[in-house]
């Protein structure tokens, strides 16, 4: 087992009833790499990310994250793995009635014992840390405001602070800006990826538009119908490759071809 890989997925298959969300999917991500996952909705990006922190269980195949086999981990082992993985959701998923600080503090639950009612339930040191994380995302002045009074972009920044509060080694982001307008999207992506770079985190971030990630990410991985169809270094990625990727997806969608995925040009798959 090489610890040099933060994520190692081999032959991962996931069925939801009859529907196959992921089929024989394999991927290795070295420590410190920033990876963008691209593809249409329903292509399996979210399903993949949710396997990496154990929110889903594989139907077949192996998932190894930060040296732990996620597929078999449960209870305390799974929790201690999750503690090291920050997860940012498309819909932010903050507790709206709680204050921003309390939401950020919940990121420290994994290393604390027992339930923590309210901000005053947390140790002072954690509170100080949480405030620092809010500062990092530029929202320290909103610490005691209810989370649901914030704008979407601000809420997502609080959610990022919550993930950073975990002191993670790996950051997973599932369409973090898909519910935001373009201008806010750019700000939020900048905050997310800047923080991750500063802390030298490995990042897997799923996105609708690759353009958003090209400036930051080193590698782009494309999914379609639960299969890997694109895997390229961002610097090698030509405009035309992306156009092919998308136009191919478009054509397929228009045809609504239910049969198997035609294997795309081998050139695209090359690293």
């Amino acid at each position: 087992m090489s610890v040099a890989h933060a994520v190692r997925v081999q032959g991962l298959t996931k069925h939801f009833g009859d529907h196959a969300a992921l089929q024989d999917f394999s991927l290795e991500v070295p420590v410190g790499q920033l990876v963008a996952l691209v593809g249409e909705s329903g292509s399996g990006k979210s399903t993949l990310l949710r396997h990496l922190n154990g929110l889903h269980r594989p139907t077949a195949g192996a998932v190894e994250v930060l040296g732990t086999d996620v597929g078999s981990a449960k209870g305390a082992a799974l929790r201690s793995l999750r503690r090291r993985i920050g997860f940012v959701f498309q819909q932010f998923h903050l507790v709206g009635r709680s204050t921003c600080l309390e939401n950020v503090l919940s990121g420290s639950l994994g290393r604390l014992k027992g339930p923590r009612p309210g901000v005053i339930g947390y140790p002072i040191a954690e509170r100080r840390d949480a405030l620092a994380q809010l500062e990092r995302v530029g929202l320290a002045d909103r610490a005691f405001q209810r989370a649901d009074t914030l704008s979407g972009g601000q809420q997502q920044r609080v959610a990022i602070a919550r993930a950073l509060m975990q002191r993670p080694n790996l950051m997973l982001a599932d369409e973090p800006v898909a519910s935001l307008d373009p201008e806010t999207s750019k700000q939020v992506m900048d905050v997310l990826l800047r923080c991750c770079l500063e802390l030298n985190l490995t990042v897997l971030c799923s996105l609708h538009q690759v353009e958003m990630a090209l400036g930051w990410c080193q590698r782009v991985v494309g999914l379609r119908d639960g299969r890997l169809v694109l895997d390229a270094a961002a610097s090698d990625l030509r405009e035309s490759d992306l156009r092919d990727f998308y136009s191919d997806t478009e054509t397929r969608k228009r045809k609504a071809d239910p049969t198997r995925t035609p294997v795309p040009a081998a050139a695209i798959t090359a690293r």
């Binding site: 922190n53 929790r79 999750r82 993985i85 919940s106 639950l109 604390l112 339930p115």
Partner: peptide
């Protein structure tokens, strides 16, 4: 809403912690 509950579970919290926090 299930989302915020899942988010707290994803930080590595236990069930009782999640119940109180989310």
């Amino acid at each position: 809403r299930p989302g915020p509950r899942e988010a707290v579970m994803a930080t590595g919290a236990t069930r009782p912690q999640e119940m109180i926090t989310s």
